[in-house]
Design a binder for these strands. Structure first.
Lengths: 334, 334
DNA sequence: GCTGGCACTCGGTAGCCTGGAGTGCCAATG
DNA sequence: CATTGGCACTCCAGGCTACCGAGTGCCAGC
């Protein structure tokens, strides 16, 4: 554990570096408020902080920059729950006051909101439909052998898949399928849909199982939305870094497992190498699950350079996750 | 119009520049196949081509690079309809053979396919639901005052919106809404849905109109999918260009109107400044509408640096648009 | 009309230098 | 004895120069 003075110095380094993005020297620190010693003392302390792994020097005779560990300490011990500055919270408020429409669209928009407020990339992972209960199902013919099967789930999601019929079916027969599914599926999860009783009519049963099968498959993977990826180009000036980060951001499964992984370790912030995704070593992630009636329906987060403004970003994610949850739980009036 | 020799020289410059990305000098051209004159002659011809606006010199004593006009001539007069190289067409084939699922997902995947094959950013604009005819509608309560309204359209799209009821409604009353809509909406466009006859029950009519209203709104704007934006970071090495291009790519409405605009001018390729979107001056777009049964259901395209491999990109877009159309028209067996 | 030759141009790279910011260490100090 | 002012040292960033090479434009000769 660090004594008070080291803490103050570390804080000053982190804050200065976040603000200026260039290594910070002892003199700046000595002038910073909260530090009341001379630059020489600061130098000594910084040398110690470096040995202990909180700071690093890009090269001799340069200032210090925080290491992942330094940021970690900063985040764990120095970021007060704090609240959002008024402009940002106004933007968030305005967004949720006017937001409407379907879940997917809302999540997508949330991504833009987060990106816009934090100036970082935003990631929103939607609910997976697997565990949700079916409210309603319907099969609709589209002419020829194509049909669409639509399910409304209890969490508000709508899953729909296009299926191909083995042969043409009349409207009447298709409504029979619809009716059968509608009679047996609601109240169950899509996953458990397999054991819907048979009708005895081979063709109908066949369509039923195809329909359930495709719905279950499509519900199995959670939708991911990414917004503001372009801000990564602003965050780094090494083109190579930009390339690799952007490339990684496009691989949605990487993002999903990153987010899942961070949450499963009980973290809400993963700094640099902590999250273990190599191309994103120079990035930090802040995530927060979204709960509706105690059930997790998704995750919101931002992803930015390790030298991001943690207090602001954490507060934003916090507020957005909260408002989004409330927004979803009561369908609009909050 | 250019004589044969100038044509050959221009072609050589374009091809060389596309391949190497650096200004090409007279000596290279003289060695290129298809050009049988000395470098001195090439120099003279290039000077003329420059005066006529087909080539430009970054600075005195550098090689020439094609101007937008140069690319335009190349595209118009030198790109044979040609076909895709076998590896690429195999990738496309494999994709459409295994692709399945709902329209949106398919379009999204198409975006990745295009990006992957061409190594450029891909843009896919989906169908707008306005003009499509409703096949089926349903209103499903979600508990409390929330409800979801789902419509299956004739083009295979599923529109769904969450709506907020003025007060709680029983399942029975909601199914009454469903039934009423289902009785009157199918066969019409969502746009014309406003004049569905009233039931006389104020509450029901109210819900009906809200439902139709939200569906119509959500159907009005076409979905846009962008993939492979990260490749722009590979295409340019000026960080600023990357920033502005990426930023522009995130503004979906810009993309939609860009695509629409290019198509409406009857073009399939827009080069550099031709498309009039300032931040994308160093980019070209190749678009192709997707038709299903003679009706346009969307547009696929790629967006890359003006010095992109036009023949390859054009062929890819062509093939993908075609296969996608066939894929959509018969629900899977092509 | 084409071509070889030549003088000229100009950007990019490498090498050099210098100024400044920063460090580490030490001796002095309260 | 912790703190501090001072000092010698380090090293990067940026400006300067020189040079090389690729390329051009022009001209005289074929």
């Amino acid at each position: 554990m660090l004594d008070e003075r080291k803490t103050a110095i570390l804080r000053a380094v982190v804050e200065e570096y976040i603000a200026t993005a260039s290594p910070v020297g002892s003199t700046h620190i000595a002038n910073a408020q909260g530090v009341k010693v001379s630059s020489a003392t600061v130098r000594n302390e910084m040398a110690v902080l470096e040995q202990e792994g909180y700071l690093a020097q890009p090269h001799t005779s340069a200032g210090r920059i925080p290491t992942d560990r330094g940021y970690r300490f900063f985040v764990d011990h120095m970021v007060a729950p704090g609240q959002l500055d008024s402009e940002a919270s106004q933007q968030v408020g305005a967004f949720f006051d006017t937001a409407h429409g379907r879940l997917e669209e809302l999540l997508h928009q949330t991504t833009n909101l987060l990106a816009h407020v934090t100036h970082h990339a935003a990631v929103v992972v939607g609910p997976r439909g697997e565990t949700a209960v079916v409210r309603s199902v319907q099969v609709v013919g589209l002419g020829g052998r194509a049909a669409t099967v639509v399910a409304v789930l209890s969490n508000g999601t709508v899953e729909n898949e296009q299926i191909e019929l083995q042969g043409e079916m009349s409207e009447v027969r298709l409504s029979a399928v619809s009716a059968h599914l509608q009679a047996h599926l609601p109240g169950r999860t899509l996953d458990s849909g397999r054991d819907v009783p048979a009708t005895g009519d081979v063709e109908l049963d066949n369509v039923c199982s195809i329909a359930i099968q495709s719905l279950a498959t499509s519900a199995a993977d959670e939708p991911v939305f990414v917004g503001g990826a372009a801000s990564m180009a602003r965050a780094f000036d090494a083109v190579d870094t930009v390339r690799s980060v952007l490339h990684t951001l496009e691989q949605q499964y990487v993002l999903v497992s990153l987010v899942r992984d961070v949450l499963s370790r009980g973290l809400s912030v993963a700094i640099g190498a902590e999250h273990g995704v190599a191309p994103l070593v120079s990035c930090s992630v802040i995530v927060k699950p979204v709960f509706v009636d105690g059930e997790q329906v998704g995750t919101v987060g931002v992803l930015g350079p390790t030298r991001m403004d943690y207090p602001q970003a954490m507060a934003t994610v916090e507020v957005v996750s909260d408002r989004l949850g409330r927004r979803l739980s009561d369908g609009g009036s909050n």
